[in-house]
């Protein structure tokens, strides 16, 4: 699963640590999600999308 977290985070000028604190996960988890190494759970994905004020499908892209 791909995502646009890095771009959205840069637009808001947030660090990974800022986003991790707001979502309630570790910075390592945000880094792993950004790099596509780890797919977040649905609640975490919704929390991230909500923080950026975007629908979930605009942040996470499912590729076949």
């Amino acid at each position: 699963m791909e995502n646009k977290i890095r771009v959205l985070r840069a637009e808001k000028n947030w660090t990974q640590e800022d986003l991790a604190g707001a979502v309630g996960v570790s910075r390592q988890t945000i880094n792993a999600i950004e790099k596509g190494k780890f797919d977040p759970s649905l609640p975490t994905a919704f929390r991230i999308a909500r923080l950026f004020g975007q629908p979930i499908e605009a942040v996470f892209l499912y590729g076949d």
Partner: peptide, 8 residues
Amino acid sequence: GSDELEKK
């Protein structure tokens, strides 16, 4: 108390 990646 760990997050989902730490649990994994």
